[in-house]
């Protein structure tokens, strides 16, 4: 069987799975903390490199449902792609599985909060010209790091639970089966 046809169909199902897990399972929420169960799939590129594209496409369509919609579809998807790519490299270089969740956690926490804070105007700079570079300057120059870091922690913890508590057991279980059949 041709390898690339199989890659295309696998990418398709991973994208569908990411979308289904995001759209159909209501996020587990614990007070204000929301966890996207589908984020556990961002560890898949660690053992299946082709799924980088699947996770990216899935994230793109899942973000259609996000309240930030189009902004999330562009930036959120880009960050997911970047994180998946880094996770894939960690897998290729046979690094420890416990390092694999770091790219999605760090990139999403620091990246996504950047535009959440900018959109919500939480930079405290008192201007409505919410230009990303202006906001960034303010975040780092003034002491308005607190709202930014709050959002970072908020997203980071959710991501860490999805990847460490669910993602790593998933990858371990898949790896055992990969040797048998997949």
């Amino acid at each position: 069987m041709n390898r690339t046809t199989r890659y295309i169909t696998r990418i398709g199902v991973v994208a569908a799975l990411y979308f289904v897990l995001t759209a159909i399972l209501a996020p587990i929420s614990y007070g204000q903390l929301q966890i996207r169960v589908a984020e556990a799939l961002t560890l898949l590129p660690f053992i299946f490199p082709e799924t980088v594209i699947g996770v990216t496409i899935g994230c793109f369509f899942a973000n259609l449902l996000s309240p930030f919609g189009v902004i999330d579809m562009i930036f959120g998807t880009f960050f997911t792609f970047l994180a998946a790519l880094l996770t894939m490299f960690l897998g290729k270089h046979k690094k420890s599985i416990f390092l694999a969740p770091l790219p999605p956690i760090l990139i999403n926490a620091f990246g996504v909060s950047l535009y959440v804070v900018t959109l919500a105007g939480l930079t405290g700079n008192g201007n409505t010209n919410l230009n990303l570079s202006v906001s960034l300057k303010y975040i780092f120059q003034n002491l308005s790091l607190i709202p930014y870091l709050t959002v970072v922690a908020w997203i980071g913890i959710g991501e860490a639970i999805a990847t460490y508590a669910l993602g790593i057991p998933l990858i371990n279980a898949l790896e055992r089966r990969k040797k048998l059949a997949l």
């Binding site: 295309i8 169909t9 990418i11 398709g12 199902v13 991973v14 994208a15 569908a16 799975l17 979308f19 289904v20 594209i53 699947g54 496409i57 899935g58 369509f61």
Partner: peptide, 12 residues
């Protein structure tokens, strides 16, 4: 890939 994933959404 997009059409395959779309087709799989209701199945999954």
């Amino acid at each position: 890939m997009i059409s395959i994933s779309l087709q799989f959404v209701p199945i999954l």
